[in-house]
Design a protein around this nucleic acid. Structure first.
Lengths: 114, 114
DNA sequence: TCTACCGGTATACAACAGTATACCGGTTAC
DNA sequence: GTAACCGGTATACTGTTGTATACCGGTAGA
């Protein structure tokens, strides 16, 4: 893993970075993913797991996550119909970034505090 | 580098992630950092290097980057006074995340396109 | 029948991020 | 003196993001 800034990052590279940022931007997206990973798979479960989120935001963010294939929405055609959200294997590829962010954020707080 | 999502990420961890996201959020921050890395160290140089940025935004983003110690503002007391922006060694610790984002964004575009 | 849960949607609004446009005082080059 | 560059600031606006609050039809249990 390189520890220097890319000196020759192209405009193309920047687009990729912006894409990645776009996909995870949004106040609740990360929390939603983690809530699902923690076993909250139904709409109301996720809502309860994330105290202050409104159903409107949850609905909206879930749709975006689904479009970006980080989350799948499964409909079980029982009665009453059961809906479950799950993370995709692809979503797990996100792990590296999340861990890097935790590490960097931790470090950052130390740096800023002095 | 772990390739799975953190199953037991704490609320604390989430704060760090949000912090990291906060520091690099902003439409122009990444481009500003890369522009400086590419050798554009003066205000107007950076402005010319990033075609559509307004001086207001450049000023604002530079201040935030300075507060977060990713960028330093050096004043050379010649006449006329010369001001130079530079990235900090700390800023380079960001490299890992940028590279991860480029990699992931590239991958993501493939995934989404099919 | 009444209440409560499910998976959401509708409408209106507030807050924040970003843009457009003009301008500032100081310095140097013609 | 006047034009152009430097490093920005001021004001007003637009656009996007997130919030608040209420509500929907369908199902299940008492």
């Amino acid at each position: 893993m390189p520890r220097t800034l890319p000196k020759h990052a192209t405009a193309e590279d920047m687009k990729y970075v912006q894409d990645t940022l776009y996909v995870i931007s949004g106040k609740w997206k990360m929390m939603i993913i983690l809530a699902i990973c923690a076993g909250n798979n139904r709409f109301k479960e996720i809502q309860r797991a994330i105290p202050d989120i409104t159903p409107r935001m949850l609905s909206k963010e879930l749709k975006e996550l689904e479009q970006n294939k980080l989350v799948v929405r499964k409909v079980y055609d029982e009665s009453p119909v059961l809906i479950e959200y799950g993370t995709t294997p692809y979503c797990k590829s996100f792990g590296a970034i999340i861990h890097e962010m935790i590490r960097w954020g931790k470090e950052h707080r130390k740096i800023i505090k002095r």
